[in-house]
Design a protein around this nucleic acid. Structure first.
Lengths: 230, 230
DNA sequence: TCGCTGATGATTGTATACAATTATTGCCAG
DNA sequence: CTGGCAATAATTGTATACAATCATCAGCGA
């Protein structure tokens, strides 16, 4: 349930969802090459479908397509990383505000279950899954705010954040942010919109502070990529 | 120069730019069917390219792809229309703020020339072109703000606004908004960030006020569309 | 006349074949 | 042994062919 959007005829969606999930869970890491034949064989579809899915992901900036060279998992620059979180800082707090006003008991149940899953994933050591769920939490809030357009943007930003985290999050001391999510949950439950807004703001600030956006990113995945002059 | 983004191998871009421009200029109106063979023949490319371009436009919500039925110019609902301008209200004022701080003389020249072109188009009665240029003005400001990520979002919103205007702008008494753009220009030139922010806010409010978002939209383009039960 | 059903035609969905481009490897001159 | 170059292989870009789905309409029966 990443994003309820257009419908490029189902099979494209399967492939791009599969790839997107793998990226969210850091199983596909920045810079990796996505060979069309290979991907096609994995999902049991032809290159036509794969190309369609890759273009879709490229539009969301999860993948970069270099003409005649192929598709690669995106490697957001430090600047891009900053921009992504600046955009989130612009969109998410107000969205949390709106969400706090509209949160229904059903929404609360969903969010609670979400956090539980997140904890379970952390306890089970499935950091990849935990990370993806952590992002979904933000998307869920955007959905509750009932602003589909903004929710779409936030969805894209969360997805890109996953790449940023993969590249710039050096200190991997477990996702300590679950506390922040809990606090947000409380504010939403109490319909305290202003508090929710503030909590979201500081939560995002915290996230950025956990990144190391002053140094160049990790070395590339493969030697080839390392020695490319681009 | 609508958007400097990914590069799906040049030819897709040509087609999708062509279609997008036509939509911006209201030569393609909401609900129109975009037949793949037809479009392909017009641009001299195969359906492969056309489909790629259509998917791209569908991702930006300018086009809606209905599985097994084809691609149509999007018909934003009243709700979508509101959301688009709410999102703009969230993004553009702060962007104008940033832009005011960073505007260079070169930027000013560009914006001035832009406004001149806009006026020329209005005087020449080319309302379509005027409308497109009016949108580009906003995009230009986002570019000046030097936030590529947010600029991309604004670009999409401006594009969708064009559809909203096509559907909901009943009173077509010339684009009187050029005054607002002039005022913005002045604020940018003077680096008065706060004023630029306020001007942008009120400009967007004005724009929305010119729309009629209380009634259902215009009748469909063709009888077929009219009688569809969707 | 109205409504249903089945055949026909048009359009989209997918796979595959071929062309163009890029990457790799082996070879030879220096 | 090194560096450049040419041949080969691998991969992407595009067009086309075929399959699947949907729209249209004629024909039939009520």
């Amino acid at each position: 349930m990443t994003g309820a959007a257009r419908k490029p005829s189902k099979r494209d969606q399967t492939v791009s969802d599969g790839l997107a999930t793998a990226i969210h869970e850091h199983r596909l890491t920045p810079g990796m090459k996505l060979n069309e034949d290979e991907v096609g064989e994995i999902f049991g579809v032809s290159r036509t479908i794969v190309r369609s899915a890759l273009q879709s992901l490229s539009h969301e900036r999860l993948v970069v397509i270099e003409p005649n060279r192929g598709a690669f998992v995106a490697q957001p620059s430090i600047r891009e990383a900053r921009e992504v979180f600046e955009a989130r800082a612009l969109l998410e707090p107000r969205t949390a505000h709106s969400a706090a006003i509209r949160t229904t008991p059903a929404d609360m149940d969903l969010l609670k279950r979400h956090i539980d899953e997140e904890h379970a994933a952390i306890d089970a050591g499935e950091t990849g899954r935990a990370l993806r769920l952590s992002g979904s939490f933000h998307i869920e809030i955007a959905r509750i705010a009932d602003q589909a357009t903004i929710a779409t943007f936030i969805g894209q930003l969360v997805a890109r954040s996953s790449l940023v985290i993969a590249m710039y999050w050096r200190r991997r001391n477990a996702l300590c942010e679950s506390h922040a999510h809990h606090a947000l949950l409380d504010a939403l439950a109490a319909h305290e919109a202003d508090r929710a807004e503030e909590l979201m703001t500081s939560h995002l600030v915290d996230l950025v502070s956990l990144l190391e956006l002053t140094e160049p990113p990790d070395g590339p995945t493969s030697l080839k990529e390392a020695l490319r002059t681009e």
